[in-house]
Simulated assay, not measured.
Amino acid sequence: MEDSSAKVNRAKKIRFEKSGYYFIGLVAIMILGFWPTYFSKYFDGTANFNLYFHFHFMMASLWIGLLIVQPILIKKKKLAIHKQIGKLSFIILPLFIISVILLKHHQIGGKVAQGLGASLWLQLKDIIIISVMYTIAIVNKNNIQIHARAMIATGIVFIEPTLGRFIILTVLSEPNFILGLGITVAIMYTLIISLIIMERKQTSGRWVFPLLLLIFMAFHYLIFNQVSFPLWDSFAKWFAELPIT
């Protein structure tokens, strides 16, 4: 009976070493999401993007590339190469965060408009979640169960901006940011909750996805309710007026 039970538990485990193949799907979503406003511009000759956008796109692409390659290397038992490539994350992640900050600052254009503080939650969400999950992954680099889940969580962060753009710009009959974001969030929550349910009987690392969901929910509450407060508005004003872009 014990052997049979063990086989059932193994069958229910998520095969994290296969996650790289799933993240290839994220590349497809990224192309679909950014096709109307980025890729298509190179075909009709209207591409006029600034350096900040290119920098951000490059860093995001490199991170997704890591999420694809690293699990495949684990699956193929290329552990030495996996560790060497993993060191690049110490460079790519900080540069990705910098790219998010610079792009948002450039988009603001130094204008302190009403609701600026509330508008910053969207970018802060991505920075905080990917930073927290990456920190968890690195602290637990020798615990594959926690490390793998946390790195997958950093990839889930990219679903919202890519899938959201596709839904808002292509699926909806008219662009509607709140509606499109709501649909995207519902899909993401379904994915994360499904992972939580699949892992409910695991003994190691199953807290990672519930933590991810809680952080997402906290930020989405702030975003959908356009929450702000004087101290945060002051920070937003200070940020907008910084001479960095």
Rank of each mutant, 00 (worst) to 15 (best):
A148C: 12
I178V: 07
F166A: 15
A236R: 09
L213F: 05
S234V: 12
K237C: 09
M198Y: 09
G182Y: 08
M217C: 08
I215N: 05
L212E: 09
L179T: 09
L212F: 12
Y189L: 10
F166L: 08
R149C: 00
L211I: 11
H220C: 05
Y221F: 12
L163K: 10
E160F: 08
N176L: 05
N225H: 08
F216G: 03
L213C: 01
V227M: 10
I178L: 12
T203Q: 11
S228Y: 02
W232E: 13
G205S: 13
V185D: 02
P210F: 00
I187G: 00
I215L: 14
I167L: 06
E160A: 15
L163W: 07
I193F: 01
T154V: 09
Q226F: 13
F209M: 15
I196C: 11
G205W: 07
I215P: 06
T203W: 02
G164L: 10
T184G: 12
F216T: 01
E174K: 12
I146Y: 05
S228F: 03
E174P: 00
F224G: 10
I197S: 04
V185L: 08
H220G: 02
G182H: 03
A150P: 04
Q202Y: 05
V171K: 00
L211K: 00
G155P: 11
Y189P: 13
L191C: 14
T170F: 02
N176T: 03
A150S: 14
Q202W: 03
I146N: 09
S204N: 15
Y221E: 12
T162S: 15
L191N: 05
F177P: 03
I192T: 14
S173Y: 02
L222F: 15
L163Q: 11
V185H: 00
